[in-house]
Design a protein around this nucleic acid. Structure first.
Lengths: 191, 191
DNA sequence: GTCTATAGAGGGATAGAC
DNA sequence: GTCTATCCCTCTATAGAC
């Protein structure tokens, strides 16, 4: 009946994820994690020595999640349309159900106030994200599923930027924003 | 030889604008304003009773700026293309020269941690911004300058979201992102 | 592995002198 | 209109008991 000792660590990480992606690095404190969990701040420091360490682990976790999700997407036949829709569904879920922003948003906003470690994670994540979307765009054009007349990198960048913005505007203008923006992305790809 | 007494207030407001739009509400303190100005925190409190008041004034200022800028844009002949380009140039300048985000980004990210006053200003600003862009899109379609087959509101929303995202990705991936994304916006309007 | 206790810094805000 | 001085709070982080 013993609870596995990774449980607390995982629980901390999950709450930190929601808080970091929901409010940004400077928008939450250890208390926001410890109090709801019924533990003390010192317990968090046992698992993660600093706030920077904790948030770095959150970023790493997001990168791992993205890696496994996109690998999953690619298993399903290789249709670019499928891979695009799967990614859009992932983002849509993050915004509407988890009320989370993409971590890139939170890092970019507070860039100048953050530890180097966090910034480095964000740069790596942005490269990984863009590399994935660029491949999807290339594939979509090769397969004549998507229509656009510019570099695939540029189209991928534009799609990612649009989704980042959707997460923000949804908080201010309401959840319907997300589906409208996603619909427009499809539209601009000739879908 | 007396310096007008609005000078300090204006100076505070200008620095607060850069800090708020550059780091977010939770990413700067009164010290970041007072120390470079060579004054004390108490002097700031004389002009703005709380941090919420100060940032609310920053939002109001941005709304006023936007109002006068867009009114200016409309004086120049009424071409939708001109009005779009003028707005894009304004945003481009904010991101690349002033290193500032649109205040909507900063509010959206820390939404749950902000005073009601700031949130209300952000909602109003988002409505004003979208109303302007929607008018430009409608005009552009009427004049056969822009091509898109969805509601003008949706296209405006998508353009705004894309620009919000561009500001973030530029910080992580470099300034060239802004021009690539802006180019893609034109492209997706058939320009 | 979690606790209590506390250090030590920094935050916003106020009172009262000048 | 700006200052000094101070209050009170919150924050991250550490030491040492259990």
């Amino acid at each position: 009946m013993t609870i596995p000792r990774t449980s607390t660590r995982e629980h901390i990480l999950k709450r930190a994820t929601v808080l970091f992606q929901g409010r940004g690095y400077n928008g939450f404190s250890f208390k926001d994690i410890s109090t709801p969990m019924g533990i003390r701040n010192a317990a968090i420091h046992y698992h993660f020595s600093t706030k920077s360490d904790l948030c770095s682990a959150v970023m790493q976790r997001y990168r791992d999640l993205l890696k496994s999700e996109t690998a999953d997407f690619m298993k399903h036949g290789g249709s670019a349309r499928y891979q695009l829709e799967a990614y859009l569904a992932f983002i849509r879920h993050e915004i509407l159900d988890a009320h989370c922003m993409c971590p890139l948003t939170n890092v970019a906003v507070a860039m100048d106030t953050l530890p180097d470690e966090i910034r480095a994670q964000a740069v790596t994540l942005s490269n990984e994200l863009l590399a994935y979307l660029t491949r999807v765009m290339e594939l979509g054009r090769e397969q004549d599923e998507f229509q656009f007349n510019c570099a695939a990198e540029q189209k991928a960048l534009s799609v990612k930027a649009t989704l980042q913005g959707a997460g923000q505007l949804a908080r201010l203008m309401g959840p319907q924003v997300v589906d409208q923006v996603i619909d427009q992305i499809r539209c601009d790809l000739g879908l």
